[in-house]
Amino acid sequence: MNIVVFTGAGISAEAGISTFRGSDGLWDKYRIEDVATPHAWKKNPKLVLDFYNQRRKQVIETTPTEAHFLLAELQKLYPSTSVITQNIDDLHERAGSKVIHLHGEIRKARSTANDSLIIAIEGWRLDLGDLCPLGSQLRPHVVWFGEEVPMMNKAIKLASEADVFLVIGTSLLVYPAASLLHYVPAHADKWIIDPNAENMHVPGFKKISQSASAGLKTWRSLMKL
């Protein structure tokens, strides 16, 4: 049984990590165009670095939630389980899961001279003057708006082979990530866990209107997993 889990900001919100689209989201304090686009990086790299430094510090200071640990346990019980996330934090990994990050990883940096040169960040700061071994400035290893999503094809392949497809804590408003739902086979058992699930237009999906942790326990009970 191929279980594919697709997670978004809601699973990390329980840990206290600010979401972009919530009422207290980070976008209330910053404009997308100023901190999360290639143009923003060219215009004001220091502002971009400072923004991600704040996010990185927050991630380091938080711990995985019950939902993160439940998914790690699910992967151990069913090794064919895949976790795909839109999140750039490392809470899934710290709970013990193997994860495909669609939008990059906040605790890594990459070379501006060679995209394949990726380096772990020690601590929470990445500043102007921090260079890669090639001598170029390091940038956050995240996918900005307007950039390609390198792991998308791998995620599409997994979604297309799913027997069970579970969505947790995502608004399904960010593309191309949200388009994964279009690749899930018609025969697959499809679920969505989100406090706002009942108000979401996701035809063919069974809905659990609960938080990530509570919803996962309900889902596992219903699935007898």
Rank of each mutant, 00 (worst) to 15 (best):
M223K: 05
K108L: 14
A177L: 00
R21Y: 10
Y78S: 08
R56H: 12
H92L: 01
I119H: 08
S12G: 13
S82E: 10
E66H: 13
L158Y: 05
S97D: 07
I3L: 06
A214S: 15
S23M: 12
L181P: 15
A9C: 08
N2V: 14
V48F: 06
R56V: 05
Y52N: 07
I100P: 03
K42A: 14
E105V: 01
A13K: 03
A15W: 07
R31D: 10
H101Y: 02
P203C: 03
L91S: 00
L91M: 00
D163I: 02
L138H: 05
T112G: 07
E105F: 12
S97T: 05
T112L: 09
K157P: 07
K157E: 14
A212N: 11
L158A: 00
N44A: 09
A13P: 10
V4M: 08
S213T: 06
S116N: 14
L158G: 00
A214N: 13
H141F: 14
S111M: 00
D24L: 11
R125H: 14
R56K: 07
K224P: 11
K98R: 15
F69P: 10
Y175T: 12
V59Y: 02
S136E: 13
G204Y: 05
Q75N: 07
G135A: 03
V202E: 13
A186N: 14
I88T: 02
R31V: 06
G169K: 03
K57F: 12
H141G: 07
S18H: 15
K207N: 03
A155I: 01
E105A: 07
K57T: 10
L134F: 15
A113Y: 11
S213P: 08
D130V: 04
E161C: 05
L128P: 09
L173F: 12
L49E: 03
R110F: 10
I119N: 13
W144A: 04
